[in-house]
Design a protein around this nucleic acid. Structure first.
Length: 294
DNA sequence: GCCCAGGACTATG
DNA sequence: CATAGTCATGGG
């Protein structure tokens, strides 16, 4: 099958996106090289490994293993938020004294999403209240045990576990991976909710507004308002969604002298009002600014 | 030992 | 409804 080419908007920086995907954390959901990223997704339950490079301002998509499908192209559009015009966001950034540098330093960075709802929620559960290094470590253990593996040129690549696989997971094994009893209950519980079809991306999309989506998510054990908002930001790409209380967000706001006290709710709200409609992008750029230095 | 980390839940006033 | 206590575990 011939490589797919994908046109890119402006500004778009594949390099910035790659940097974020890597950013000195060991994320098992993709593999970043010098000038490319590889990832496995499931297409009709069959794993497909693809690789993305950039050439002449286009993304070049190559299927390394498995069946090619239009699903993959759609996935990449979603993953890198390619169809969005982010120029209005840059105008807002440029007008802000403390943040103007971002429009140059991170120019073309896209809000990297998590198109799979189940994966996004599980990742939230895993990451709740623990440091990211440890969170990525335990996620890798989970994925390498229950995910779908593809071997290509001697290297292992994984797709995130299905709800069925996690629902059937052995709690003792999960405990040995250093998940707390609470998180084990949350993860398997949510896996069952998905397995039974009581939650899905489509179910959320069919709801009338963001408030209803938050409500549907937080009705599930283990999903609080932070997880709900994070998910709406990363999976449904609700531009106004802010993961309130997020430790990284608060540290980002303090680092840029926007607030001096993490409990300064009013200061945070005032700040976000300047970025109406681009709140989630702003949060993402603040996270970017906090990433460990190389 | 203490505090923090991309929180959530439950009980209590 | 706002707050306090509880859970849980690695890293600095």
């Amino acid at each position: 099958m011939a490589n797919q080419k994908m046109n890119l908007p402006s500004p778009f920086s594949f390099k910035e996106c790659l940097w974020f995907l890597n950013r000195n954390f060991d994320d098992c959901m993709h593999t970043v090289g010098e000038d490319h990223v590889r990832k496995v997704i499931l297409v009709e339950n069959q794993p497909v490994l693809f690789e993305i490079r950039e050439k002449n301002s286009k993304l070049i998509i190559k299927i390394l293993k498995g069946e090619g499908s239009p699903v993959i192209e759609n996935f990449i559009h979603d993953w890198f938020d390619i169809n969005r015009d982010i120029k209005p966001f840059y105008q807002l950034l440029s007008a802000h004294k403390e943040l103007a540098y971002m429009s140059k330093d991170f120019e073309g960075l896209r809000l990297i999403g998590i198109p799979d709802l189940f994966e996004a929620i599980c990742w939230c559960i895993i990451g709740q209240q623990i440091n990211l290094t440890f969170a990525y470590k335990t996620k890798r253990r989970l994925v390498e045990r229950y995910g779908t593996k593809i071997i290509y040129e001697g290297q292992d690549y994984y797709a995130f576990p299905s709800p069925e696989a996690l629902a059937a997971a052995n709690p003792e094994e999960l405990k040995a991976m250093q998940f707390s009893a609470q998180k084990i209950a949350y993860l398997t519980g949510i896996a069952n909710v998905f397995k039974e079809g009581k939650m899905s991306k489509q179910i959320l999309l069919d709801l009338p507004d963001v408030a209803a989506q938050q409500k549907a998510l937080t009705a599930i054990k283990g999903i609080g308002i932070w997880t709900a908002n994070y998910t709406l930001m990363k999976t449904l790409r609700i531009p106004t969604s802010i993961p309130y209380g997020d430790a990284g967000l608060l540290n980002g706001l303090i680092a840029h002298r926007i607030i001096s006290d993490k409990k300064d709710i009013e200061g945070i709200n005032t700040f976000f009002r300047h970025f109406k409609g681009w709140e989630s992008y702003l949060v993402f750029y603040l996270w970017r600014s906090l990433a460990p230095k190389t």
